[in-house]
Design a binder for these strands. Structure first.
Length: 505
RNA sequence: GCCGCGUUGGUCAAGGGGUUAAGACGCCUCCCUUUCACGGAGGAAUCACGGGUUCGAAUCCCGUACGUGGUACCA
């Protein structure tokens, strides 16, 4: 087998949803597993839907995920250019070659004529008639027109497309790496447009031409492409490249809570659907991304990888390298998988627990600073991260669980204390403050010891006092051991927070 | 409508003729923890339906239902 070369071919129409990233990931994993190349090329032939900025966004997302292309429009490579719009000329050549060999034809039908055809052939049983072998004999194309007429129309630059001429009665089949043998009746497939009136290719011509030009050995894409596979198969054959045709695999769909996952599901159900935030420049509509929501890229690719794939063991947590080592196309599921945000969060939680302080520090610090917290004591930050990471599911959770180590809580959960607050407790804390001030060596054991001694003297249940102390120190009913917090924030700050709390209760 | 692809707990899933039908998320109970988590122990919950084939079917075959994708000069 020649060197493995796979490609991810997104179209820059805005946003990179879960399915898109997973397709890129699976392509990447397969390439790396086999020591091959991962190529990213841009399908930007649909000018009507092209969205400014989307291409850069795609690269940003891939980079965040750690999916680095070996060849791309940005990086270049031996098969440049990697933008379809820059390869325009070659497509026309192939399309005309197909016409000359009788595998395709010029079609001059106007939009109105096509609509008319569809309208006339439309029945209750067949709501969307195709431009296929049953109607092509009645349309305005190089099959029905004389050579002279065709030549005349062409020289006058009459708007036209080139359509593939699907065989009338053939059974065409191929082996999908995931699904096994799949076959289609060619008579049921329509004469797809290959070259549009603006000279740009459709996806059908472009994938085949580009996969061939870029020497792609394995073509993996979403399941939504399965129905057009026969067109691509015929093209490989008609262009005389049958022997070089890549192996195919059609990846299962990722579904939302109700049917296929749409970007609106995010807003509707409260979870991100894109890798990174995407603001549509046309509508200004923002679709939330996993990155901004506080997901780690490690967790994101992990959860995506096991959505529709597993290695047959009970393992669920994989690093990128482990994924590469264990990945296999054959173990991808055939059925679509419903995306479960709860499980997605679990993956992130696991990865936060798994990652060391060095890997977390940058993100946590940025989050705290964004919240107006100044980090003056870096070693303390590291200790705090280690101490609280078990209770953080999403990165922003660190603001709640680490913030109070650096900043006096602004709002206290007064209601949790007030009902049982009394003079006895006030007295206790006043005396406790005095004791704290006398501690020469400010450390956990001393702080706790003084507390326990005083509690015993006053004959109050420790729990009655521990909760108020906690609220004073952190603001709410959460966080690590209260005395640990006191030890780290220092004597002055501890006493300050106790007094501040007493004033509010 | 037609064509393609699917269907194991609520979700992700292992298993592919004989299993008490793994495991994970979520949910519930308990333990640990003078908070919240982490951790630990347990629990409820599944082979879409109907026919075959077979001594035996979640597993193989055929139907049906349901889901999903396609049916564009979008990808």
């Amino acid at each position: 087998m020649s060197k493995v070369r796979v490609r991810f071919a997104p179209s820059p129409t805005g946003g990179l949803h879960l399915g898109g990233v997973r397709t890129a990931l699976f392509n990447y994993l397969f390439a790396k597993k086999h020591g091959g190349d991962f190529i990213v090329r841009i399908e930007d032939t649909d000018q009507a839907r092209f969205v400014e900025g989307a291409e850069q966004y795609i690269f940003d997302c891939l980079q965040w995920c750690g999916i680095e292309p070996d060849e791309s429009p940005v990086k270049g490579g031996p098969h440049a250019p990697y933008r379809q719009s820059e390869r325009k000329e070659s497509y026309r050549k192939y399309a005309e070659e197909l016409v000359n060999n009788g595998f395709a034809y010029y079609a001059f039908d106007t939009k109105e004529e096509l609509e008319k055809m569809r309208e006339e052939n439309k029945t209750a049983l067949n709501p969307s008639p195709q431009y296929d072998h049953t109607v092509r004999k009645k349309m305005k194309n190089s099959l029905t027109l004389t050579d002279a007429e065709v030549k005349d129309l062409l020289t006058k630059n009459t708007a036209h497309v080139i359509r593939i001429k699907m065989p009338e009665n053939e059974l065409i089949s191929f082996t999908d790496m995931i699904r096994g043998e799949i076959s289609f009746e060619t008579s049921l497939v329509d004469d797809k447009v290959l070259l549009k009136a603006d000279g740009m290719p459709t996806y059908h011509l472009a994938v085949v031409a580009d996969d061939h030009a870029m020497e792609i050995t394995h073509a993996f894409r979403g399941e939504e492409w399965l129905p057009s596979a026969p067109v691509h198969l015929m093209l490989w054959k008609y262009l005389g490249w049958e022997k070089e045709m890549p192996e195919w695999a059609h990846l299962p769909l990722i579904l939302g809570p109700n049917g296929k996952l749409s970007k609106r599901d995010g807003a509707k159900y409260g979870f991100p659907v894109f890798a990174m935030n995407w603001t549509d420049p046309k509508t200004n509509e923002l679709t939330a991304g996993f990155k901004e929501k506080g997901f780690l890229p490690e967790a994101f690719i992990n959860l995506l990888a096991v959505l529709g794939w597993n290695d047959g063991t009970a393992q669920e947590l994989y690093s990128m390298n482990e994924l590469i080592a264990n990945f296999s196309m054959e173990r991808i599921h055939v059925a679509g998988a419903k995306f479960d945000y709860e499980k997605a969060k679990w993956f992130n939680h696991e990865w936060i627990k798994k990652l060391n302080v060095e890997s977390l520090r940058f993100n946590v610090k940025a989050l705290l600073q964004a919240d107006g917290i100044k980090i003056l004591d870096e070693p303390l930050l590291d200790n705090v991260i280690e101490l609280v990471k078990d209770r953080c599911t999403l990165l922003p959770d660190f603001v709640q669980h680490a913030g109070f180590f650096f900043k006096t809580p602004e709002v206290l959960d007064i209601e949790a204390v007030k009902p049982k607050w009394n003079g006895e407790k006030v007295k206790f804390f006043e005396e406790y403050c005095l004791l704290l001030e006398g501690i020469g060596n400010w450390e956990l054991a001393e702080i706790e010891h003084n507390f326990n001694t005083l509690v015993a003297v006053k004959n109050i249940k420790p729990g009655e006092l521990l909760l108020p102390l906690r609220i004073m120190l952190v603001g709410g009913k959460f966080g690590p051991a209260a005395f640990q917090i006191a030890a780290w924030i220092g004597m002055d700050e501890t006493i300050k927070r106790i007094k501040n709390g007493m004033a509010q209760f």
